[in-house]
């Protein structure tokens, strides 16, 4: 089913999603990959607040290309990075921030799936590399935090309109499309190996 959501989004809306649904997002999207996770968790563990409240929001695993012209930032390249790198810390990140959507590519696994079920969040798979389509959906760059981490690593706050298509790959009911595909592939592996007579 194709769904269009506006961020911030309620837990109830997120829980109505099932793996395979196609989602387009409008509203505020925040980027964050390796370094944002590291610093944000350090802040939250120490009881400090983040420069941007992520409750009911959407976090995009993305290291963009940005250009500054006349004191204003413009997006030049904007697409998902490999989410698996954030797997060790994402469950804690969701729990501490209250974020509802994690967007990326390449999938996330058991710990994140468990946390999403418990806390009412979902993982949206954005096709890797579709930078120009993603850039088209950006209405404006609202803000940037932690620019000292470098342009791709900083926390960019962007207003988007109909960002997508994204596919619900982990829902809040324990289903994970990547794990399903992997399991089926594992089942096929033995018959492939047998056909090679190994």
């Amino acid at each position: 089913m194709e769904r269009h959501f506006r961020i911030p989004v309620s837990e109830e809306k997120v829980r109505s999603l099932r793996v395979g649904d196609v989602v387009y997002l409008s509203g505020v999207l925040v980027t964050g990959r390796d370094q944002v996770h590291r610093r944000a968790l350090q802040y939250l563990r120490e009881g400090k607040t983040l420069p941007m409240d992520l409750r009911d929001g959407a976090l995009y695993h993305c290291g963009p290309i940005m250009i500054e012209k006349g004191g204003e930032w413009r997006v030049y390249g904007f697409g998902p990075t490999t989410s698996a790198r954030m797997e060790p810390v994402e469950a804690e990140f969701i729990e501490r921030t209250g974020v509802r959507f994690i967007i990326g590519k390449g999938g996330m696994f058991e710990r994140t799936t468990e946390a999403m079920g418990r806390l009412g969040a979902a993982y949206l798979a954005h096709p890797g590399g579709v930078s120009v389509l993603a850039t088209r959906s950006v209405k404006r760059v609202k803000d940037v935090h932690w620019l000292d981490l470098g342009i791709p690593e900083a926390m960019w706050v962007l207003e988007v309109e109909d960002f997508g298509p994204t596919i619900v790959a982990i829902d809040s009911h324990g289903s994970n499309l990547y794990i399903d595909v992997m399991r089926k592939a594992e089942e096929r592996k033995n018959s492939i190996l047998r056909s090679l007579s190994i």
């Binding site: 590399g129 930078s131 850039t135």
Partner: peptide, 24 residues
Amino acid sequence: INLSAIVENIEAAKQERKPVCQDT
């Protein structure tokens, strides 16, 4: 859905003269 977005993005990059992917 994945392949359509990919093919559409390739055309868009060519037309807009923008990097196909943000990882150049």
